[in-house]
Simulated scan of single mutants.
Amino acid sequence: MSLVLTLASRNLFHDRLRFVATLIGIVFSVVLVMIQMGLFLGFGRMVTTMIDHTSADLWVLPKGAKCFEDPSQLNTGARDKVASVDGVASVVPLVIGFSDWRLGSGEVTPVFVVGADLRDNTLQPWNVVEGDVRSLSQVGAVVVDRSYFDRLGISSVGETAEIRGRRVKVVALTDGIRSFTTTPYVFVDLRNARQYTGTFPERASSLVVRVKSDADRTSVLEAVKAKVGDAEVLTSAEFRDRSRSFWLFGTGAGAALFAGALLGVIVGTVIVAQTLYSSTKDHLSEFATLRAMGSSNGYIYTVIIYQALLSAVIGFIIAAAIGYAVVDVTAKSALPIVITPWLIAALFALTVVMCVASAIGAIVRVVRIDPATVFMR
């Protein structure tokens, strides 16, 4: 085994320029796939960030609601009916919607208002870095993310603006709560949210249901469904999957990211295959000598495969380092790249398969060598 590895490494490192070209092809393809899949995972997380941070077991939604940001509304008359179900701990309405934020300069920018009952602790701002969230109970109080300072024309707690003609004051700041639609989230109390979005008192965007810890969730789910009429009832997991599916596949964003990843695999495989084939072709006389000395085809195939594996390991290590550097750079961007352990494992397996598949062309070339050619030189 050590002899095979030694021979493979010497063949691989003999022509350093060609070896560098091979690594470039591998690194390029792996980094491209990693970034595309990282964007896919990052986008998938961002589209469900509000659902993930809502303390909910069940969601009562308007019929056909596709995601958290869906503007559809339902009648809150079912709230008391749902609350009467045995096993239900609380039922809290959420009011969300787009509105206009007027800066001090008079410029207007769209914002996405998120309103919940703060006394119930259902959906509150997280990653608070300045100010007091409890102050949201005051009339006109809002919480925004500091990454949107430029968009909102503010720079600190205490500054004021207008939402739909009503004066608002920033009472707290968060860090990292970004919207994938680029429209800033503005957290407010439920009562204020109705005014800022023009929602009638008997209407809400959804009802958040929490189930008692000792209750049978399946039974509660069925009982709630029977109480809400034509509204839909989803678990948090179901609502998360629906929202992610809509934004990733219903809008075509997921297909575009997958296409980019596939392009990276194709380009990388072609580059690596061409480089490995050229390298093997330049060493045909050495492989012919091995065959003339009685080396089996299996031994020669192993040498070529080892060359491909060495290229895969070295190229992947470099690509992974670049990938994690990109993750750090984009951590606070509008669409952060996410790299998970399973993605790293999958990409390593993909890199190995890509390099081994690329070596097949070289193996086919070696198989056709006539050992007698070594004596004809």
Rank of each mutant, 00 (worst) to 15 (best):
Y148F: 10
L136M: 05
S205G: 10
T174V: 04
T122G: 01
L190H: 07
G153D: 07
L190M: 11
R164Q: 11
P125I: 14
N192E: 12
S156N: 14
T181V: 12
R217K: 11
L136N: 00
S213P: 11
A116K: 01
E202D: 14
R217V: 12
R178G: 08
T160Y: 14
T160W: 13
A223P: 07
L221W: 09
S135Y: 02
A215S: 15
L207R: 07
L118Y: 10
T122A: 05
I177W: 08
A223H: 03
A172E: 10
V133T: 01
D132A: 08
K212N: 11
T181C: 03
E162G: 14
V128C: 02
I177K: 09
V139F: 02
V209W: 07
T181Q: 09
V171R: 05
L136S: 01
V220F: 08
E130R: 14
V188Q: 02
V144G: 05
T182Y: 12
P125C: 12
R164A: 15
L173D: 02
T199K: 10
Q195I: 08
K212T: 06
R191C: 04
R166F: 14
N127M: 14
V170M: 05
S156C: 10
T182G: 05
T122Q: 00
D189M: 00
V171K: 03
T199P: 06
T197M: 05
V188L: 13
G153S: 11
S135T: 02
R146E: 11
P125N: 04
F180W: 12
S137A: 14
G131Y: 12
R194I: 03
E202P: 02
R151D: 15
V142I: 15
W126P: 04
I177Y: 05
A161F: 04
I154T: 08
D120K: 14
G176C: 02
